[in-house]
């Protein structure tokens, strides 16, 4: 029984690793582990055009597999990361990059954290300025009236 538990535990430990392996067919990997690591790093920056929210490294789509192959061919040919990404952008536009570049079209996108902060600061400043002054102390007549009310 104890052995059985140990086996199940060992299986559970291996499970996530096996799941990660299941994604890429070993046949499509490069022989040189350093080149393969580079290819994977590049692939993770590239969007699968079919699934759109997955990188080509994560996607099971046919096109993603083809693009993984292309990346590996270019890595094996000794191209730089930038060259390979530029190759993809030439065909699929900047949409293929999961991390959008800083360009006029994306200025608002990249500036949005700062814009949100400035907007929030403006709202807070406006709210502070609008704060009403503390009420005037009661006049003698009001004090007398309050006393009468509390008494009755």
């Amino acid at each position: 029984m104890r052995v059985m538990h140990a086996l199940i535990f060992a299986f559970l430990l291996v499970l996530p690793v096996a799941a990660a392996w299941a994604i890429s067919d070993p046949a499509e990997m490069l022989k040189d582990p350093r080149q393969e690591a580079r290819a994977e790093a590049i692939g993770r920056q590239l969007r699968c055009l079919v699934c759109q929210n997955e990188s080509i490294e994560d996607s099971q789509a046919d096109l993603a597999r083809d693009l993984r192959q292309v990346v590996r061919q270019h890595v094996a040919a000794g191209e730089k990361d930038q060259q390979i990404i530029a190759w993809m952008v030439a065909r699929y536009g900047n949409f293929v990059r999961l991390r959008p570049p800083f360009e006029p079209l994306t200025w608002v996108l990249w500036a949005s954290p700062v814009l949100a902060l400035v907007g929030g600061a403006l709202v807070v400043a406006f709210a502070m300025r609008q704060k009403r002054p503390p009420p005037q102390p009661l006049s003698a007549a009001e004090k007398r009236k309050l006393g009468d009310l509390l008494k009755s």
Binding site: L49, D62, L63, D66, L67, V70, R91, Y92, G93
Partner: peptide
């Protein structure tokens, strides 16, 4: 057949 020329055209489906 390989789809490689189509990739050069930016075909995604």
């Amino acid at each position: 057949e390989s789809g490689r020329v189509s990739i050069d055209w930016g075909i995604y489906g």
